[in-house]
Write a protein that binds this DNA or RNA. Structure first.
Lengths: 189, 189
DNA sequence: GCATTTGCCTAAAGCCTATAGGCAAATTAG
DNA sequence: CTAATTTGCCTATAGGCTTTAGGCAAATGC
């Protein structure tokens, strides 16, 4: 009996790939076991439950996305940073739709607090430094940016923009221009 | 053997209630059968599949939401209409989180085209009439509004705004003010 | 009243999660 | 280098959800 060499990490990674290929809701321990040519029960030596797998995929994706955003934000400020942030977000969702879905998994507060979700919030605030917003405007702006980016990406990947001839890329740029103008107009100075 | 008097409509309605109480992903034919004190197989006389039930709930919720928006939009224009639209959306999601989730169900194009989703798009365009936007700006604006509203509501109901002391209602108003200003600035005149 | 249709039932199969207990491979200890 | 222990994957089993097939009784129609 040759061992398959499973680890929580390998399973998480394979789960993320499966999510991108078949959808996050198709990620099951059964499907994963088939992928490793192993019996389902064997996975329970590495993962407590199906829920744990999903949570691990979510944390993995949050981390990966935060890394990308960090990289794309380096050395940028103002509108440049805003666009880099937004594009990193959108590109990730398009390249890895299943993982992006995973990032929307509701985590229990404790897990969320220890996750890369915190980095996301910090980076959003970092972008806003270029716009000189005082509290509570800064928090309002964080929420607005989060909403627009998540909403757009979510609607776009759900195919919500495919019924009009207008290029989604154009809309995206128009929206970024608009947000930039809006934030500049809100500056305290 | 007394008959339970099931119909697709009653099942859909009960499914919507179940969605609000337990979450849209907890809506199963099994749970519904329990609720009507009936065996699961009996439901298949009224619904083709679990998928059909979910689709029906989605269509029901889209219709209900569109009705609300229509009502709240009556006699309003400009920022007033924008706020009424946005509030109708957000209030619905807070009162009926399960149904709101259902509206995000991916429908096949044919079903979507025949759904109240079309009315939603029309109403968004109606609001924008007050801002005098030419194409393709109008389409960009439709997408932006859809993104912000959906994104905000989605993040808020997921508890994403509960880690800061700032009142979500204030953020919501700040965002509506911002969007109004943005759209006025984009007017063609 | 009798025939047909309709509505709910039992039975059964397939797939998913999860637990318990077993055996062999890998690791550690003497 | 072998023996003891731990670890990894297995079989078996049970419970839940979906779906289909076939049966019987209640409702409907002629």
């Amino acid at each position: 009996m040759v061992r398959a060499g499973l680890t929580p990490e390998r399973l998480t990674r394979a789960g993320a790939e499966l999510a991108d290929e078949a959808g996050f809701d198709q990620v099951t321990l059964s499907a994963l076991a088939r992928r490793f040519d192993v019996k389902v029960a064997s996975l329970y030596s590495h993962l407590k439950s199906s829920q744990e797998l999903k949570t691990r995929i979510a944390l993995f994706a949050l981390e990966e996305l935060a890394d990308r955003v960090t990289a794309s934000l380096a050395g940028r400020a103002g509108k440049d940073a805003l666009a880099a942030f937004a594009d990193a977000y959108r590109d990730y969702a398009r390249e890895h739709p299943g993982r992006y879905d995973a990032t929307r998994l509701r985590l229990d507060p404790e897990t969320a607090a220890a996750s890369a979700g915190v980095r996301h919030a910090q980076m959003t605030r970092a972008i806003l430094r270029g716009y000189d917003l005082a509290e509570p405007d800064q928090t309002h702006a964080v929420r607005m940016l989060g909403s627009v980016f998540h909403g757009y990406v979510s609607l776009e990947t759900a195919g919500g923009f495919s019924h009009t001839a207008v290029d989604p890329q154009e809309s995206w740029e128009w929206i970024l221009d608009s947000l930039d103008a809006l934030l500049r107009a809100r500056a305290t100075s």
